[in-house]
Design a binder for these strands. Sequence first.
DNA 1: CTGAAAGCGCTTACAG
DNA 2: CTGAAAGCGCTTACAG
Lengths: 341, 341
Amino acid sequence: MTGKRPTSFDIAALAGVSQATVSRALSQGGVVSEAVRQRVVDAAAQLNYTVDVNARKLRSKKINTIAVLISEDMDKTDSPINPFFMPMIGSILKYAGSKGYDVLVSLQKQSDNWGSDYGHARRADGIIFLGYNDYDTYTKKVAVLGEMGEPWVLWGPVIPEHPNLVIGSDNEGGAYSAVKHLIGLGRRRIAFLGEPSASHLEYKERFEGYVRALTEAGITPDPELMIDCFISREDGVAAIERLMSQGVAFDAVFAVADLLAVGAIQQLLRAGRSVPKDVSVMGFDDLWVCTCTSPMLSTVRQDTTEAAHVLVDALDVLISGHPVELKRIPTQLIIRESCGG
Amino acid sequence: MTGKRPTSFDIAALAGVSQATVSRALSQGGVVSEAVRQRVVDAAAQLNYTVDVNARKLRSKKINTIAVLISEDMDKTDSPINPFFMPMIGSILKYAGSKGYDVLVSLQKQSDNWGSDYGHARRADGIIFLGYNDYDTYTKKVAVLGEMGEPWVLWGPVIPEHPNLVIGSDNEGGAYSAVKHLIGLGRRRIAFLGEPSASHLEYKERFEGYVRALTEAGITPDPELMIDCFISREDGVAAIERLMSQGVAFDAVFAVADLLAVGAIQQLLRAGRSVPKDVSVMGFDDLWVCTCTSPMLSTVRQDTTEAAHVLVDALDVLISGHPVELKRIPTQLIIRESCGG
DNA sequence: CTGAAAGCGCTTACAG
DNA sequence: CTGAAAGCGCTTACAG
């Protein structure tokens, strides 16, 4: 529909130079006299010309594109993307864009044999994986990429034994500081709401922080207070229902994810308990929803902006052929109304 | 870093056919005998070969890529993307992917002279614009694309005078049904929280629905009940503060966006009013946060999944050179706890 | 159904 | 600093 797009030859003719010179004038490192460059730029503007990126990529073998592959969230019906990743994706788009990368975004089922495709077909120079937190599944996948020499980084649990290039939050430390804060408030019976599967290492790390804080305060972790849940608001509601129906006494809730904490607050209020007077509630993530509840939710913030920068920078380094170390990003305790004083 | 990628010539040699046949065997409409195709596919698998998408795009002139251009939200500090678009983007990724499109996503400032770039540089066959709801700004921009013959669709207010290809919700009808519902509950003093700028036509349409429902019920719209706000939780809080400090009596709130309604609920509770007993609250959008408040927020749902499908389908039709009509997607009234009975 | 050949629009040594 | 030429890896008429 576009009619005839002008090519570099058209610009060359109009500017009275060779096609090669047009190419030089319009690319980053091209050596041309300033006068000629100006003529070319004017001619390009006049004909509404832009470099054909596909020809450039083919010829130069530089793609300047990164792929963001997001694990499709099968639990959620409303949106296929985990809300935690939303601002992170936004920041990745913004930051990668500022570094001159185009960004391909794709949703993938964890089961598919995706991934290799993107780099392999020369669509992207490197891949950022988001939401692949099931250790058993993803390790095999990225191993393939490693063999192919495809640069990739993954957001997830940072563990030393892990094959390089994983970037994530200080989950244990974040959980520790949160629970320590609750203890400082005088809470002793702190319920733990979390993911049961042993392959979700991030949640396991948060559990370890919980245990450390309790132990340090001389409190013996009580299995009755530990509720296995998947990560959803509904599971948070159910967890509180279960604790109360079993008659388990508790004066605080630490949830491994804000979604759980949101559900917990709702169910506590519904049951006539006051938050934070009767029960303090603490989440993890600092989703945007934390400021929308009444009372507003205290939480452990994962810095998604910083995460995006670190991920893109690491991939950038990897693409240029240098090694990168795995990195743990500090969390920050955010105290709002749901904790009380 | 990847070493030598195999080309179609390598596959040809291995399979004992010509390079052209490899190309045919591996492309959609290629005519080849089944036996040969199998040999080629096997050879490709053996060498871990995938078609170089850049060469394919250059040669075939088919890009099979759509660009999603999102207006960067300057108001928000936490995330640069309006939360309303999050699930829509997810659905677009999913649906466009299922149709065989790659999806480039980019954040743009409304002021930039972006956009034309994407189609023009042969990066994308067409463009989906999200969040460009300032009528005055975007009309000029898309006009340029129109002249260039670049396919595009825009999510926004659907108005007959508008240059084609805009897809949006039935804003007037949605607001009408919401306010009518409040009136049916016995509410008479219904505050309107909305965006003041006349160029934000979607909000204007919702205002018109509000007025129509009131008028139809014989209630004269009262300017005292109409509060100008930008679209944020904070503005929702401020709006309620203002109404109460001015001593304006009201028994319901209709907000043009859930964000406002969330803030309204928070401030009403803080001021000791009961929701919904004293005041019914109704939002618009059906953001995911609606189920996270206490009480849960009633709202007018915009169907983001349907929207994504309609946008992608329309762009698809446009790309193939056929015309498309502007379309209005029905909204749905979602009654939750914040309305009362 | 298959092969030989041309060419998509660029970038980049190689000369000058 | 600039030009002529080769070639990136494919697709697609054109023959057969």
